[in-house]
Structure formats: structure tokens, C-alpha cells
Amino acid sequence: MRCSRLSFAGLVLCAGLLATGCTPGVQSVSIASGTATQVVSNQAPWSPLLNALDKSEAASMYKMQTAVNIQNGNLHTSFTVYGTIQQPDMASIQVHENNFNIAFYQQGEVAYQQDGTIWSPAQPVSNLNAYQTYRDVVEYAMAHHLRLVKMNRTYVVDEYCDVYRVVVPNGIVSLPLFLGGTAGANEAELSRHASEVAYVFYVGETSGYLRQVQTQSVAVVDSVGSLIMQTSTIFQDIDNAQLAKVQIPVSLVQQLEQGVQ
């Protein structure tokens, strides 16, 4: 008697919740990445950062995960990238541009891009080394005797990192080829119309690789005003032949097997 009453009450409760559309929510997963906040030394030597850069540039494979966040008024828009890269010419990348999703796969001279669900042939990207242009920042800063600041050691993904920060003018890093020489993209215009950029480098204490790079800057755009821009790039599974191996996407294999180019 008591049991049937209870189950009746339970049934009623469930029916009521269903009728009003109450269901448990889903928790989102966040990326494990620390951010250094305090300056511990105002004058740090360049050699540890240079060594890390040398070692990272020579890495043969890694995963990267990046995010560009732009604050425009009360709104935030983002550009995020998940990629696996294997030097010199293999890569599998997903790009999320606000609400557009793009996938890209390359092996040697073969390259495909995916828009929605359909893969189509693409041009291979000539330089797949995502570490390389950080050298522009470090070299510029050293040549101009800019100050390298050391910040508090911070845990990134799976190890503690030494953290260095340097502030350089915008526009000193070589741009992707398609932007080179186009309107609004030359160095003079970039440095005049944007704030300086603070680069924060995270060097792994045990691995010796560059594990994370964050930037903070303000983009200044005609008729829009100042946009706060924050970017973060995390590298992981560096030189890990099991986890950072590039594989052909299953959907691409299926499509090509069906004879659709």
C-alpha cells in the first residue's frame, strides 16, 4: 500500500516535470591551462626562451589548440583551432570561425578542405611550422633591447612552466601569405592603428618546449573603435609519436572511396 503510494507520487512528479520540460542540463568542459599573473623578476635572460624556441621549432609533431577572442562592445567573438601537425607536410586541422566550421587535411602535395559535410580539393599549405614566427617576436625584442619579464611559474596541461613576458609593437611578425601587402595589413598601418602586443611565453620546465603562448592587445578599427584581443595557443603531445600522429579523417576516406572528388 505504502509502496504503491510512493510510486504513484513518483509517477506524478515525473509526469509533471516532463510536462513542464524540466531536464538536467549538460556541463561544458573547459581547457586546462594556467595563466601567470604576477611578475617575479623585471629582467630575465633571453637564453632559456631562445633554447625553448630552438627545441620547439625542431619538433617533428605536436597538437595545437588555439583561441582568438575579440571583445566588441558587450559581445565576444572567437576563432578557435584544433590541429595535429607532423613536419614537414602533414596536418589535420579544424577551424571554428564564429559559427562556421572548416576542416583541413594535408599529406604532402595532397590537400582537402571540408565545408559542412563535403570535402573538396585544396591547395597544400607550404609552411606547417606553427612555432616559426615566434622567432620574429624574440629577435625583434632582442635587437631592440626590449625588456623580458619573468612571471610566476604556472602549470600548463601536464607540467610546470617558466613564464616570460615581452611587449612589442604590432605588425613586426610576418603575416600569412594571403595578407601580405593587402590594404590595412602593412607594418606601418598595423603599428599605428593597434596597441603594442604583450606576448607571454610558457616554457616547460621538464620538457623544455614552448607549451603555451598568450597575447593581449588592442586592435583599433575605423568606425568600430578599440577591440580587446586575447589569444592563447597551447601545444601538447610534442614529439609523441602515438598521440600526435596525423591520421586521414574517416569521412574523407569514405567520400573518396565512393568516387566523389
Binding site: 586541422i93 614566427t133 604590432n170 611578425v173 594571403f178 606576448y199 589569444t231 595557443t233
Partner: peptide
């Protein structure tokens, strides 16, 4: 798509690339 991938693979240039794109 091609440009987005090229931009994505040059993280050091993000602050400048997206400033240029915004311009």
C-alpha cells in the same frame, strides 16, 4: 577556407592578422 587555415597556422601573427582582417 584556405585563408582561414593559413591564418590558423600562424599563431604568432594572430594579433596582426586579425587587426588586418578587421581593417
Amino acid at each position: 577556407d584556405q585563408q582561414a587555415v593559413e591564418a590558423a597556422l600562424d599563431p604568432a601573427a594572430y594579433p596582426a592578422s586579425f587587426q588586418a582582417i578587421a581593417n
